[in-house]
């Protein structure tokens, strides 16, 4: 599914990723953990194609295609979905309008027909219901005035609608109380599929109680310094990141 080889990235002359390697297989849920500043969020932005990052070396292959050659929207059409740590507010754009524009743009890029309005509405309603998103929220401007939990749920709803093959969850647990976290995790778990992979970025082990990973990778100073099974997360929770900080330095 996803293969990252020797990735070096800097932003404004500051090196963030230093030869990162990572493989995520079809249907795998991979967790990325690491201390603050280890480059976790940078990794998510670089995969999705944010402008500000300069890739100095390496490649990111999604099913054999090099993502680095593609614009952000082409990457989305190719199946990459990033659930943002801080979803953006778009005043003046109704959530429904936005969802429809995004879904149809992706369908168009993949050569599918646009969805009819009733079909679209049906899908949105079903998804919203599962995530406890009230209907009137869909009429409001996207994320404007939404609570932290509502914004995160809206990200998961988009993930469900756009049917990506590779999902990145960037600190989806931050700012969520336990109930909101469960709803979000249920939403993600419902999307688990042998053909869909996940990269779950988190600082804390807590989220991984609800989204149980197949593999856990520890990042430090812009590299993956250790990989293992889900038990690695528990180990980190117990011992902290101190060992890995020194290791990378």
């Amino acid at each position: 599914m996803l293969e990252i080889r020797n990735l070096h990235v800097q932003i404004e002359d500051k090196k963030i990723l230093n030869g990162l390697n990572l493989t995520v297989h079809d249907g795998e849920v991979a967790a990325i953990m690491g201390p603050n500043g280890s480059g976790k969020s940078t990794l998510s932005y670089v995969i999705a194609g944010k402008d500000d990052y300069e890739v100095l070396d390496g490649e990111i292959l999604l099913n054999g295609e090099n993502l680095l050659d593609m614009e952000p929207d082409a990457r989305a059409a190719a199946g990459v979905f990033l659930a943002f740590q801080y979803p953006l507010e778009i005043p003046g754009v109704a959530t429904m309008t936005f969802l429809k524009a995004a879904l149809n743009a992706q369908r168009k890029a993949r050569g599918d027909d646009e969805l009819s309005t009733p079909d679209f509405m049906k899908r949105v309603r079903a998804g919203a219901e599962r995530l406890h998103i009230p209907q009137d929220m869909l009429k409001r401007a996207l994320n404007v005035g939404f609570s932290g939990g509502e914004k995160k749920r809206m990200e998961i709803l988009q993930m469900a609608l756009l049917e990506p093959t590779f999902c990145i969850l960037d600190e989806t647990d931050s700012g969520l109380d336990i109930d909101a976290l469960k709803i979000a995790a249920d939403g993600v778990n419902a999307l688990r599929d042998p053909k869909r992979s996940f990269l779950v970025i988190t600082h804390y082990q807590r989220l991984l109680n609800y989204i149980v990973p197949d593999t856990v990778h520890v990042m430090s100073s812009g590299q993956v310094v250790k990989s293992g099974g889900k038990e690695l997360a528990l180990e980190l929770e117990a011992n902290g990141y101190a060992d890995y900080r020194s290791q990378a330095a």
């Binding site: 614009e71 929207d73 879904l103």
Partner: peptide, 9 residues
């Protein structure tokens, strides 16, 4: 970027 990451050209 947010919009493009959702697939809008």
């Amino acid at each position: 970027f947010y919009l493009r990451a959702r697939g809008l050209p």
